[in-house]
Structures are given as structure tokens and as C-alpha cells.
Design a protein around this nucleic acid. Structure first.
Length: 579
RNA sequence: CGGGGAGUGGCGCAGCCUGGUAGCGCACCUGUUUUGGGAACAGGGGGUCGCAGGUUCGAAUCCUGUCUCCCCGACCA
């Protein structure tokens, strides 16, 4: 493709509203243009990348027996009432929904469990038809609380979603494991460095789930890993053995201490300089929302630890959970913010404790009275230890759950998530099959998503330098960037044309910078920005049929004969599966 | 949703405080020279200053409202 025959505009400066590199670089290179917050136009170059990613996804799914289909983005409310997710998604505000001209409510699909279950239940009657494995690649719509970072988190994005249907839990697990391998293959082929981690399944539901995290400092997710034991989990899900608390002092009687204005751990520790942080127990109040009711929940937690709201939410089996507002705190504690404690809470407040409080003796806690805390409080003596479970956030330096390693916290970009759904949707929506003995049973489902557009962004986050993007060969918009120094100079024209035509004929796509009146500096800068991995420079040695050949990452740049270069390129492309 | 910041040619910005005919760099167009790391010169085109009201002889600038975008937060009492 001649550059002069395509729309090619690059910017010299970063756009003012781009925070992360992938976003800024894609905009500068003309790959991406914002239409509105979280809504983007994918330019021709980016579309080539996305189609490459899609192609890899298709090949890896097809290879293990998945069939591609396409479901509608527009979905009727009734379907979501059947699964019971309408109210929750509307409440969360994530669902784009509206009424059609007849007043029937519809939504733009944020995911497709309901639709696929409907489709499959009409198709499947017998165990003989199972397993069934389907997938689609399609635009998803989610009214994100805060879209950001360009393609990383948009209101509209391209997703591959796959679904498996099996006769039993064991078969479902086998399908899940199969998909685990598919995902590893996909992301490896896309040139990404990634880590599969244990995950919380969130609003999708189901038992087991894993996320595929692209290792990147700018990732939105924190993950707990241990290289020694191989443990890896999203921080939302991660468990650990926490360091033991400091020893208690003398078993003196519990007594009230004046703590005027001391609302935070730091302020309290300043007032009690001899008190170790592990003997300060904070009490955090939450408002939990259930299907039919709300509840105020107080959670005790050691001063050096934090409450993991996801674990708490799951334990409570609540719809949603948020930090209690000031008014709720006042009525639950009878005090201003900052003095909540386990003693004398208002009736109806549910008291829980994180496991970190176990074994803490003679602690300091809020008195539920403004400007006062209790000191030297003991469980068993001054109050019973409340219902205790793991509601804590894992911290760097904790021991792994098995005690054999140490946790490190890193960050990642979630590009894939796989779930064992079980029978959650099939039971709710009556998707059943007849087994060998004519017994009607619900289908065992799995669902599996890849953020196709996010994969492109993640690839840039992981592969770029100060000059621009560096695409992995497998998903690059073009395999080869042919940079012609002087367009119009006959020897260069002829040789460039030959290189271009030869490669194209072999199935290697070439972007040919044939722009006249553009200096070499500008051409190199643009080539660096766009980040096509293989580069051929046709310049002063064109008459000798010699060109410069190198990689975008700067490795091994040298001047060679054309035939040699062509064969090296073909070889590299074949290896990357793109010729 | 709470807090902060910003809207001025396609992009990045100045001007606003102290009202008086809108400016710079990049990009773009024409011409000449130039061509291995963002070329030089000359000439040129393009902006109802987010939108709506108001104050004023006069508003990018002051006031009110509104929309949009970005960042932080939804964090422990």
C-alpha cells in the first residue's frame, strides 16, 4: 500500500486529554479518534490491528471446535427479567436501555448470556447434541462509571464472547480448561506477556473464574503474585497469611480514653505513641443493599490492614455495597465520623470482623461516642468476638495462603476472563436437555470473554518507546514499513516497487512511504510512531540493489542485498503466521 | 455521584486578571531551493473564542446559567 494513496495524518504533539501512552500514541499516529467520552473511531490502521487480533482469536477457537455466530446487540428487557439481571444492571447504571416506538424496553447488550441461553435452549433437546461451543466477536455497550485511558475502558468496545454448554459439572470444567489453553495461545500469539490469575466472578456469577492479565504498570487491576509458589490472584480475590499482631500489654481493665478530633489511624497513633498499629482495631461501616432490603454492616479490621469490599459483598450475598454515608454512621454509632467501634452499636447494625482481628488483645477501638475511644479491650472479656471471616486485602510481604512463599503486588490489564457459570442461567431460563434416562437436566455453562480492542491497547502499553509504538509482528497493521528516501528518484522508485510487489505477492503486507517532498527525518519519525515491526529503507544504495533492513525495536539494523532482505522478511512473517 | 481542572482555526497553546477589530508553534495550500532522523525562504487560506442569556457605546475578556471534556475519588472513620 502506497502511503500517498491512503489517509495518513500524524500529530507531532501528544493530545492534551490522553493520560496513558497507548492512548496518546494511537491518537498521534491517527489510529484512534475520540468522538465522545469513552467512544472512539477506529481508524484504518487500528482496524487492521483489530482484524489481526480477531483472526488469531478465530483460529484458536475454531481449532478446538468452537463455531462462530453473531447475536444482536439490541436485547429485549424480558430476557433480562428471566435471568433476573435487569434490575441489578439498571441499578448499577451500567446498562444502556431505552424504549422503542411501541414502548417496549430494550438494552444494548453489555454481554450475551441471556441471548445465547435462549438460542441454545431452543436448539438443544438431547445430551447427544452436547457439548456445544459457540462464540461471537461483536461490539459491547456498557455505560461505564468512568470511561478512561482511550481504548482501555470505553463505553463501546469490541469483545469476543464464547459460551460452552455441557451435560455435567465435570464436562463444564473440561471445557473451561480447554478454553484456558485457548486463551494462553491467543495472548501468546498476540505477543503479550501475561499472567492468568484467580478472580472474582462479579456480576456474571458462577463458581470458578480466572482473569488473563497483561503485565503492565498502568494496568487498572492490582494482582497478588508469588513467583516461588506460582500463586497469582486478583487482589479482589487473593488470600494470604498475614503477619501476627504485636503482643498485648497487661490485662488491665477496659477504659475510655478522650481522643478529641482523632478520626484516623494516624491521628490515634500520634495520641498513643506506644500503641502498635496492630493493636488498633478500626470499625468500618457499610450500607449493603439486598433484593428487598438494606442493612448497615460494621466490619472490624486491624489497623494495619484494609477491608476488601468484594470479599465482604460476597460473604453478605448482597447486591451492592458501599461505604456508609455520614448520616448512617451517625445513627449507627451515635457519634460523629471517626469514632465507630464494636460496642454499643445501634440495634440492627450487623457486626462482622476480618480475620486480622483474631488474636489481637488489649486493643484500641472506637467508643461510638464523639471524641472517645476504648483502650485495653479484650475479646472474650469485654465483648464476644463477632462473626469472623476473611474480609481483608492482601498486602505485599504477606505469606501465601500455604505459607510457602511471599506475596508481591503487581499491576495488570485484564484482557480476558473465563468463568464456570454452572447452571445459573440455564436454570433461571429453563435451558434443559434430556439425558440418557430421559431425565430433564439444566445445561452446564461456561462463558469466556476477550477484550479485543483492549488487547490492542495493552499491546502498546507493553511495547512502546519514547518515539512510538512497537507492534508485535503477529498483530501489526502491516508487516513491513518500506521507507523510500527520495520518491521520484528512478532507481529508488524501481527498487521500491519491486520490493513492494514481491512481498505483496507472497502475502506480506507492506506500507510503502512513497511521499515526495517529505524529508527523511519526518519519514523515520512517522515510521517510529506507527511502529510497524520490520523496516526496509530504500536509499542511496538503491542502484546497487542494497537496502537497509531492521526492526522497529532497533535490533540488528544493517545494509544488505535485496534478495537477502526479502527472504529474511518472508521467513519472519511465516514464523509469525502472517504470510 | 463528590471534588478539582479545562473548553480560543485540524492539533498543542498564549491572550482573559486590568473589556477596545484574535495571536503563536505545528499542520494545510502555492512557488523556489532542499532530501539518511521532524528542511529553508517567500507568499497564502482557515477561528460567530463550547452554547445561551445578561452588563456595557463596545465582551474571548465581567456576571448568570448550561453543555462537553480531562483528572482524582467513590479509600477504611
Amino acid at each position: 500500500m502506497r502511503l500517498t494513496e491512503q489517509l495518513f495524518v500524524t500529530l507531532r504533539e501528544d493530545p492534551a486529554d490522553a493520560e496513558v501512552r497507548s492512548h496518546a500514541l494511537m491518537v498521534r499516529a491517527g489510529f484512534l479518534q475520540k468522538l465522545s467520552a469513552g467512544i472512539y473511531i477506529y481508524g484504518p490502521m487500528l482496524w487492521r490491528v483489530l482484524r489481526r487480533v480477531e483472526q488469531i482469536v478465530r483460529e484458536e477457537h475454531d481449532r478446538v471446535g468452537y463455531q462462530e455466530l453473531l447475536m444482536p446487540a439490541l436485547q429485549p428487557r424480558e430476557l433480562w427479567e428471566e435471568s433476573g439481571r435487569w434490575d441489578r444492571y439498571v441499578q448499577d447504571g451500567i446498562l444502556f436501555h431505552f424504549a422503542d416506538r411501541k414502548g417496549s424496553e430494550v438494552c444494548l447488550g453489555p454481554t450475551h448470556e441471556e441471548v445465547i441461553t435462549t438460542y441454545v435452549k431452543r436448539m438443544i433437546q438431547s445430551y447427544k447434541q452436547l457439548p456445544v461451543m459457540l462464540y461471537q466477536i461483536q461490539t459491547k455497550f456498557r455505560d461505564e462509571i468512568r470511561p478512561r485511558f482511550g481504548l482501555m475502558r470505553g463505553k463501546e468496545f469490541i469483545m469476543k464472547d464464547a459460551y460452552s454448554f455441557d451435560v455435567s459439572a465435570d464436562d463444564m470444567k473440561a471445557s473451561y480448561e480447554k478454553m484456558h489453553k485457548v486463551y494462553c495461545n491467543v495472548f501468546t500469539r498476540c505477543g503479550l506477556r501475561f499472567t492468568p490469575v484467580e478472580a472474582d466472578s462479579g456480576a456474571i456469577g458462577g463458581a470458578g473464574s480466572e482473569e488473563f492479565m497483561v503485565d503492565a504498570e498502568t494496568g487498572e487491576d492490582a494482582i497478588a503474585v508469588c513467583h516461588k509458589t506460582g500463586y497469582a490472584a486478583n487482589i479482589e480475590k487473593a488470600v494470604s497469611q498475614i503477619p501476627a499482631p504485636d503482643a498485648a500489654g497487661d490485662a488491665v481493665e477496659m477504659h475510655k480514653e478522650p481522643t478529641p478530633g482523632a478520626k484516623s489511624c494516624e491521628e490515634l497513633l500520634a495520641l498513643f505513641p506506644n500503641l502498635p498499629k496492630t493493636r488498633l482495631l478500626k470499625t468500618v461501616l457499610y450500607s449493603a443493599t439486598y433484593e428487598e432490603r438494606e442493612e448497615t454492616v460494621a466490619v472490624m479490621c486491624r489497623g494495619d490492614r484494609e477491608v476488601n469490599e468484594i470479599k465482604l459483598l460476597n460473604h453478605l450475598q448482597a447486591h451492592s455495597l458501599e461505604l456508609a454515608d455520614e448520616e448512617t454512621v451517625r445513627s449507627a454509632t451515635g457519634a460523629e465520623l471517626g469514632f465507630a467501634g464494636p460496642l454499643n452499636l445501634a440495634d440492627g447494625v450487623r457486626l462482622l470482623a476480618d480475620q486480622s482481628v483474631s488474636g489481637v488483645e488489649g486493643f484500641l477501638c472506637g467508643a461510638n461516642e464523639t471524641d472517645a475511644h476504648y483502650l485495653d479491650v479484650w475479646f472474650g472479656r469485654d465483648l464476644e468476638q463477632p462473626e469472623t471471616a476473611d474480609f481483608g486485602v492482601v498486602q505485599e510481604g504477606d505469606q501465601t495462603g500455604d505459607g510457602k512463599g511471599v506475596i508481591k503486588i503487581t499491576r495488570g490489564i485484564e484482557v480476558g476472563h473465563i468463568f464456570q457459570l454452572g447452571t445459573k442461567y440455564s436454570e433461571a431460563m429453563d435451558a434443559t436437555f434430556a439425558d440418557k434416562s430421559q431425565k430433564v437436566k439444566p445445561l452446564w455453562m461456561g462463558c469466556y470473554g476477550i477484550g479485543v480492542s483492549r488487547v490492542a491497547a495493552a499491546a502498546i502499553e507493553q511495547n512502546h518507546d519514547e518515539n512510538g509504538m512497537i507492534w508485535p509482528l503477529s498483530i501489526a497493521p502491516y508487516a513491513v514499513h518500506l521507507v523510500q528516501m527520495k520518491a521520484g528518484q528512478e532507481e529508488q522508485d524501481v527498487l521500491s516497487q519491486e520490493i513492494h510487489d514481491t512481498l505483496q505477492a507472497q502475502g506480506v503486507d507492506v506500507l510503502w512511504d512513497d511521499r515526495p517532498k517529505v524529508g527523511p527525518g519526518a519519514k523515520f519519525k512517522d515510521a517510529d510512531l506507527v511502529g510497524i515491526p520490520l523496516r526496509v529503507v530504500v536509499g542511496r544504495d538503491a542502484g546497487d540493489r542494497r537496502v537497509e533492513f531492521g526492526c522497529r525495536d532497533g535490533e540488528g539494523r544493517e545494509t544488505l542485498g535485496v534478495e537477502d532482505v526479502l527472504s529474511q522478511i518472508l521467513h519472519a512473517c511465516q514464523e509469525a503466521g502472517r504470510a
